[in-house]
Simulated assay, not measured.
Amino acid sequence: MPKVGMPDIRKPQLVHATMSVIDRVGLHGASVALISKEAGVSTGIINHYFGGKQGLLQETMREVLRQLSHTVKSRLSQLPKNEHHQRINAIIDGNFVGYQAENKVAKTWLAFWSHSIHDPQLKRLQRVNEKRLLSHLKTELKALFDSEQAEIVAHGIAALIDGIWLRGTLNPGGIDASKARLIINDYLDNQLNQYSKNN
């Protein structure tokens, strides 16, 4: 029986080990044996805490999503409610800097992203993430556009975030947060200029 308090140590340890193994051998090669060896624990611990590999993979994706949500909320909390452009940039930055830009985290994201097409639980988590991103964006954009246009621009920014992130993850040089911000702000400025001309 695991000691009291051990889950708080073991669970994060196993999540980080999962990311390290996925970084090295990919999602399909990330076996329970490799992950437990990386974490320095027995394979039975994974079954005990997560019910097997699938449960561990889901918890790993949840952790990545928690970190992303925390980063975005933390950045937004530091900005005034009426600084909508700055707040949009805080949302953009949250997707490209810090934890999300770490190589093993980015590779884990990419592995889960592709795997979620065929995995209902991972797909559900991916949809939660997508809805959260669009919700954050629409909250700020509705102060700059009418509701219909805010919806369109939110989807445009989300598509740019995904596309730039994907290219950066596949690029040996990694993700360039400054370039991402520049590209997305250019799109946003063009949308604002076009909107102001028509209204």
Rank of each mutant, 00 (worst) to 15 (best):
E102C: 05
R24A: 09
N193T: 13
R132L: 14
R167G: 11
Q126C: 09
K179Q: 15
D189N: 12
D146Q: 02
N193W: 14
K11Q: 03
Q86E: 13
G40P: 01
P120K: 02
N82T: 15
S135W: 13
H70F: 13
H155R: 14
I91T: 04
S135C: 06
V4E: 12
N82S: 13
I175S: 04
Q191I: 09
I117N: 13
V105G: 00
G94W: 10
I157Q: 12
E102T: 03
I92L: 05
W109F: 13
L56A: 00
G26N: 08
L57T: 09
K53P: 09
V128N: 15
N193V: 10
K123S: 13
V128A: 12
D146F: 04
A17Y: 02
G94C: 05
S178T: 15
V128H: 12
L122V: 10
Q13I: 01
G5V: 09
K179I: 15
D176P: 07
L160S: 07
I117A: 09
K11W: 01
S77E: 10
G168W: 00
A159P: 08
I91Q: 04
N193L: 15
Q194H: 14
A33T: 08
H118I: 08
A17T: 04
I183R: 02
V25F: 03
Q86P: 06
I184A: 04
P120M: 03
V128E: 15
E102G: 07
I117F: 13
E140M: 05
H115T: 08
T108N: 02
Q67D: 04
D8P: 11
F96A: 06
D119K: 02
A30F: 02
R10W: 13
N185K: 06
E102M: 09
D189M: 14
M61S: 11
I152T: 09
N171F: 01
V4M: 14
K123E: 12
W165Y: 15
F112M: 11
I152G: 07
P7E: 07
R132A: 15
L110G: 02
G55T: 00
F112N: 00
K73P: 10
V97Q: 07
A180M: 01
H85W: 11
D176V: 05
Y99R: 02
T108H: 00
L141I: 02
K138E: 15
L27Y: 06
G51N: 04
I161L: 03
S147Q: 04
L182T: 06
M1Y: 14
S36A: 12
G174T: 08
R87K: 00
M1N: 13
K37D: 11
L79W: 02
I35M: 08
E140Q: 06
K123W: 03
S114N: 14
T139Q: 10
A154Q: 00
A30W: 06
A159R: 01
E130R: 15
D93A: 14
G173E: 05
I157C: 06
L192M: 10
S20C: 10
Q13L: 10
I161Q: 05
L76V: 08
L182C: 13
H28Q: 09
P7K: 11
L76E: 04
L65Q: 00
K3C: 10
I9N: 08
N198C: 05
H118Y: 12
D23E: 11
I184F: 01
N199I: 12
K138W: 06
K104N: 14
F50G: 07
N47Y: 09
V105I: 13
H16M: 13
H84W: 08
P12Y: 04
V105H: 09
W165S: 14
L125K: 11
M1C: 07
I117E: 14
